[in-house]
Simulated assay, not measured.
Amino acid sequence: MTQLSINTTQNVNINFTAATIGDRILAYLLDFLVKAAYVIVTYYIFFYALGINKLLDSMDNWSKISVLVLFYLPVAFYSLIFESLLEGQTLGKRLLKIKVVKIDGYQASFGDYIMRWLFRVIDVSFSSGIVGLISIIASEKSQRLGDMAGGTSVITLKNNININHTILEEIDVSYVPTYPLVIKLNDNDARIIKETFNNARTHRDYQMISKLKMKIEDVTGIRNQSGNDEDFIKTILKDYNYYTQKM
Results as ranks from 00 to 15, higher is better:
F232R: 00
G227S: 02
D31W: 06
Q245G: 15
W117F: 12
F32V: 03
I216L: 06
T42L: 12
F46Y: 10
L50D: 00
D147T: 06
K194Q: 14
L237R: 00
V173M: 12
W117Y: 13
V121R: 02
K158Y: 13
K158V: 11
N15V: 15
F71S: 00
N198P: 03
G111V: 11
N11T: 11
F77P: 12
Q245I: 09
E230D: 13
G88Y: 08
T202L: 15
T156G: 10
S109K: 08
Q143I: 15
D57S: 10
I52C: 03
A27S: 14
L86N: 09
G150T: 08
D229H: 08
N199R: 04
I192G: 00
V124T: 07
D60E: 13
N13H: 12
N188R: 13
T235F: 00
E83G: 06
Q245W: 04
N198M: 14
S210D: 12
N13E: 10
R144G: 01
I122L: 11
V100I: 10
D31L: 09
G111A: 15
W62D: 07
Q89F: 04
M148G: 07
V69P: 03
L29F: 15
L237K: 00
I163E: 01
S153R: 05
D31K: 07
L118G: 11
T220E: 00
T166M: 00
Y48P: 00
I103Q: 14
T9S: 08
L212A: 14
N53H: 06
I222D: 00
Q89N: 02
R116N: 11
G151A: 04
L168V: 05
I137Q: 01
R24W: 12
K246M: 04
S226E: 12
D31C: 05
A138M: 08
V41G: 00
D60S: 13
V69N: 07
F197K: 03
N186I: 05
H165E: 13
L55N: 10
G227A: 07
V219N: 02
S66A: 07
I216P: 02
L73K: 04
A27D: 01
A76F: 15
E170T: 12
N224P: 01
N15I: 14
T196V: 05
T2Q: 06
K213M: 14
S79I: 11
H203C: 08
Y242H: 15
I193F: 08
I209M: 06
Q10L: 07
T20N: 08
K234M: 00
Q3F: 15
N224Y: 03
L70G: 11
Y48E: 11
V176I: 08
L157D: 02
D57I: 02
Q3I: 15
I122G: 03
N188D: 10
